[in-house]
């Protein structure tokens, strides 16, 4: 009996880990592409929050989850367009712009939440969740079926994004150009290729992925929107890129480690073990700092990360 109970719990934690890991993977892969192009986008948190709100709001208004997810991606991309313009065209300090975008999203989503989503009586506005889509046959595999193949399609997309990103970076011409951008943008420029265009596209892609990640947090896992719902996951995505040493496969591992911590925390709370859950909630952030203390972790950092390219100097 107790053995069965333990087994159920372990499977449940691991399944939750994959589900919680999905938005982290999506946002981190997006950030990886932007950073490989040499732009450090610290506005991920804000872009995720914007995606999170728009995903919920548009789904609530139109009844279509797809419309919600689309709106989340477009909204976050618009924010990343500001990021790209300030960082690439105007060459302003990238960290300040990212920070401003986070504050903008934080204020704006709260403002829209309060003014557009009126609570009717005592009921909060809520939506139907994105449905689970277990993959035929694969979901029947013992253990693995429940842990990996019984989620909604956004989770599969997140997992697939890792090999796709890896293929793009290491096996295609555009991937090579992108990696070169972060290391030595002058080389790209000398070849007569546009540095700015490629960086814009990379940052916009990062924004789109952050929006998708945000949408996952609302329509993919909750029937309600709560202000500040992303709760630092965008920042964790940035940590994951560093801890994953700017390589897709290690980013996947790092994302799952953080997701495991959160899944574990949820189950401790649910099972009712008498331990202050706030300490467990703080754990991912403390682990993040410890993860960054390893010197070896930074060996693959793009050489001109965060440095705006200027032809003159």
């Amino acid at each position: 009996m107790s053995e069965f109970f333990t087994e159920t719990i372990v499977i449940s934690i691991l399944a939750a880990m994959v589900r919680i890991g999905a938005p982290l993977i999506l946002a981190a892969i997006g950030e990886l592409i932007a950073e490989r192009a040499g732009v450090i986008n610290l506005g991920v948190e804000g872009m995720m929050l914007m995606g999170c709100f728009l995903g919920f709001f548009v789904t609530f208004e139109t009844g279509s989850i797809l419309a919600g997810i689309g709106a989340a991606m477009v909204g976050a991309m618009l924010m990343s367009l500001i990021m790209a313009f300030m960082a690439i065209t105007l060459r302003l300090e990238q960290f300040v712009t990212g920070l401003a975008l986070n504050l903008l999203a934080s204020g704006l989503t709260l403002f829209w939440f309060r003014s557009l989503l009126k609570t009717i009586g005592s009921t909060q506005p809520n939506i139907d969740l994105l449905e689970k889509a277990p993959i035929p046959f694969l979901s029947d595999i013992p253990y693995l079926g429940i842990i990996v193949f019984s989620h909604n399609w956004l989770v599969y997309l997140a997992i697939l994004s890792v090999p796709i990103c890896s293929f793009f970076l290491y096996k295609t011409k555009y991937g090579l150009e992108l990696r070169c951008l972060g290391e030595n943008p002058r080389a790209i420029d000398m070849k007569g290729l546009s540095v700015a265009k490629r960086q814009y596209l990379a940052v916009l892609f990062g924004g789109m992925m952050a929006g998708l990640a945000g949408a996952f947090i609302s329509v993919g896992s909750s029937i309600r929107f709560v202000p500040e719902m992303t709760a630092g996951r965008g920042w964790l995505a940035i940590v994951i890129v560093i801890a994953g040493n700017w390589q897709p496969k290690w980013i996947l591992v790092a994302a799952l480690v953080f997701a495991f911590l959160e899944a574990f925390q949820m189950h401790v709370q649910a099972v009712g073990i008498n331990f202050p859950y706030q300490i467990l909630l703080a754990l991912p952030y403390v682990v993040a700092v410890i993860a960054l203390m390893h010197r070896r972790a930074r060996s693959r950092a793009p050489a001109s990360l965060g440095v705006a390219y200027s032809r003159g100097s």
Binding site: M86, L90, L92, A100, N102, L103, G107, S115
Partner: peptide, 24 residues
């Protein structure tokens, strides 16, 4: 006016973005 006060936080961030551009 019924405009939620959280607007102010968005306004502060927008101020920063415009201020950065104007300084440049």
């Amino acid at each position: 006016t019924g405009v939620p006060k959280s607007m102010v936080f968005a306004m502060q961030a927008i101020t920063l973005l415009f201020f950065l551009c104007s300084t440049l």
